[in-house]
């Protein structure tokens, strides 16, 4: 309860500071002041990343934006005469009012979409539960399909709805999607001796069942897996749940982002490195003096 208040206050204070500094970036006439308010805005976003438990991103935000990008901006401002815009009398144009109106329209549409997302499932459902009661989630996921008395479960304030259960189970099965998680999972028999592609087929079949709005009680062995009974399926989902719990613990750390970056998103990562190389070469070419100016080196 108290942490909820602190979280809400931290969010609103940071959000107000970020929006105010963003407004100053856009409204103030002096580019140096704009750049300094931009730092403030970037720091505000970094704090929001911390609130979102994305600590790696918060560190990157401060290093990359507040550090590198801002220094670049300030350097260019120093290289360019500042009085340019201040000297020009800005005459009001109908285009500007139109631009502001268009931007406000875009904001309204986006906020509308955001509020359509504030369905019960995003307010009080599995999303929230994950933040508030990790031990309850752990208990539920490990409990899935089969009661386990040795778990020390905190008394439940409100029972999980069937939708939340299905969503948690689906997330658990999704957690197995990565090959390395699939390999690392401690499979019980009879899955240990199964070929990986067969396990993947079973995982997809169970996910398909959950997508058809089945309740957990309706989930049985899918077609093609006649040798499996309900206890086997429960063991399967429990293994998925354990993989999911490992994933939950790791969220937001450098290790988690790095693992994704170097496995599933290796190609985009390498493409980004090529983009950086292209940017370096391009900027060097742009910065070089024109040969006809006599400055060729």
């Amino acid at each position: 309860m108290l942490t909820d208040w602190i979280y809400a206050i931290a969010f609103f204070v940071t959000a107000a500071a970020t929006v105010a500094s963003a407004l100053m970036v856009v409204l103030h006439r002096n580019p140096v002041i704009n750049a300094l308010y931009l730092v403030l805005c970037f720091f505000g976003v970094a704090v929001l990343y911390v609130l979102l438990e994305s600590h790696f991103l918060a560190a990157l935000q401060v290093l990359l934006y507040a550090g590198a990008v801002l220094v670049l901006f300030l350097m260019i401002i120093m290289l360019i005469r500042l009085d340019q815009e201040q000297l020009i009398k800005v005459k009001p144009k109908p285009g500007k009012a139109l631009a502001v109106a268009a931007a406000l329209g875009v904001v309204l549409v986006m906020i509308g979409v955001a509020h359509s997302l504030s369905s019960p499932s995003s307010q009080r459902g599995a999303f929230l539960l994950q933040r508030e009661q990790p031990e309850r989630i752990a208990a539920f996921l490990l409990d899935l399909g089969e009661r386990r008395a040795d778990l020390n479960v905190a008394p439940q304030k409100e029972p999980l709805s069937e939708t939340d259960k299905v969503q948690l189970a689906r997330q658990a099965l999704n957690a197995l999607a990565k090959p390395e998680t699939m390999a690392k999972a401690q499979w019980p028999e009879p899955f240990r001796s199964m070929a990986p592609n067969r396990i993947e087929a079973l995982r997809k079949a169970l996910l398909a069942g959950l997508s058809r709005q089945w309740t957990l009680a309706q989930i049985g062995a899918p077609a093609g897996f006649k040798e499996l009974n309900r206890a086997h399926i429960a063991a399967f989902i429990r293994t998925a749940a354990k993989a999911r719990l490992t994933q939950l613990d790791e969220f937001g750390t450098t290790a988690a982002v790095g693992r994704d970056l170097f496995s599933r998103y290796l190609l985009p990562f390498e493409a980004a490195s090529i983009l950086l190389l292209a940017a370096i070469v391009g900027v060097l070419l742009l910065a070089r003096r024109n040969p006809e100016e006599g400055g060729s080196r």
Binding site: F11, A15, V19, A22, A103, I111, A114, S122, R124
Partner: peptide, 21 residues
């Protein structure tokens, strides 16, 4: 307490996007 949900963050993001636009 006010529970900060996905929509709060998305609205803030929309406002920042609009200011930038």
């Amino acid at each position: 307490p006010i529970v900060i949900g996905l929509d709060h963050f998305l609205s803030l993001s929309a406002v920042l996007f609009g200011i930038g636009m």
